[in-house]
Simulated assay, not measured.
Amino acid sequence: MTQVTFKNSPVTLLGEQVKEGTVAPDFSVLANDLSVRTLADFEGKKKLISVVPSIDTGVCSQQTRRFNEEASGVDNAVVITISCDLPFAQSKWCAANGLDNVVTLSDHKELSFGSGYGVVMEELRLLARSVFVLDTDNKVVYMEIVPEGTDHPDYDKAVEALKSL
C-alpha cells in the first residue's frame, strides 16, 4: 500500500490499489450532464486517467491542462480527468478555462473509481492525486500515486507510457 500525505499530513487510502500488468477494474462515475459513464464507454481507446483531489485548485488545474495538452496528439487516445468535484463544478471549470474537449468525470456519488483503484483518501473523501495509463484492452501499463497530494505527478513518464502503446 502506497503511503500518501496531503499537505504533509498522513492519509489512509481506501480500496485495493491496482497494479501494473493487471486489467483495470470497471467504474461508474458521472459526466458533466449527469449521465453515468463507465470504463466501457472508452472501449478500444488508449486511456490516460488523470486523478485530482479538486479540479479548481492550482496543481489540479495545471495537471488537467498539461495532460490534455501533451496527450492530445496521441493517436486513438483519450485523457480522462476524475475527481470528487460535482459535475456542475467540473463543467464550470472547463468553461472558465476554455477547455471544450476535456473529459471530466465525477466520482462524488459512489466513489466507485476511487474505491476500485485504491485512491480514496478516507479522511478527506477526496481522491489521491494519481495517474493510470491503460492500453486498448484496459491493461494497466503505468500508474503513479503521488506520495504528497499537493505535488505534481511525473508528467513525462505518464505521457511516454501512453505514447509507447
Rank of each mutant, 00 (worst) to 15 (best):
G116K: 00
Q62S: 15
F132I: 12
I145L: 12
I145N: 07
D56Y: 03
D154F: 00
L165P: 13
L48S: 12
L126Q: 12
C94Q: 10
A24H: 06
C94D: 03
G44T: 10
G118F: 10
I145Q: 08
A89I: 13
L14G: 10
D41V: 06
F113E: 14
S164H: 09
V4K: 03
L13V: 12
N101W: 04
E69Y: 05
L99E: 09
V59K: 01
V79K: 00
L34K: 15
S9Y: 12
V120N: 05
D100I: 14
L124I: 11
Q3L: 08
W93K: 00
V11T: 09
F27K: 04
V140F: 06
V23L: 12
G73W: 00
E43R: 08
T2L: 14
K45P: 02
E160A: 15
L48E: 05
N68F: 00
M143W: 04
L126K: 11
K92H: 12
L162P: 00
L39M: 12
L134Y: 00
W93Q: 02
M121Y: 15
V119Q: 11
D100G: 15
T150R: 02
N138A: 02
V59L: 07
S83K: 01
T150V: 03
D26N: 15
H152R: 09
Y142L: 08
K157T: 09
M143N: 13
E16W: 04
S50M: 03
T81H: 02
K7H: 05
G118K: 15
E160C: 06
H152P: 04
Y117I: 09
D135H: 03
K163R: 14
D154Q: 04
S72P: 04
S115M: 08
S9V: 09
I49G: 11
K92Y: 04
F132D: 14
E70P: 00
A128R: 03
D85C: 05
L124D: 11
I80R: 00
S115E: 11
L13N: 06
H152T: 10
T22M: 08
M121L: 11
V11M: 14
P147A: 08
D26G: 12
V78G: 01
V141T: 14
V131D: 00
V29L: 07
T64S: 00
F6L: 13
P10I: 10
G149A: 15
S112T: 09
Q17A: 14
E160I: 10
I145F: 06
V133L: 02
A95K: 07
L13T: 09
H108W: 15
S91K: 05
K163W: 01
D107Q: 07
Q3I: 12
V140Y: 03
D26L: 09
K157F: 09
E148T: 13
P87A: 07
Q90A: 02
F27C: 10
P10S: 13
S164V: 13
V133W: 00
D137A: 11
V23W: 15
T38R: 02
A89L: 08
K109H: 10
K47C: 13
L105D: 08
K139N: 09
L126G: 06
I145V: 14
M143V: 11
L111M: 04
A71C: 15
D100A: 15
N8S: 02
L48H: 05
I145D: 08
L13F: 05
H152V: 08
R65M: 12
A71S: 15
G58M: 07
P87W: 01
L13M: 08
R66F: 10
N138G: 03
V4Q: 03
G15H: 10
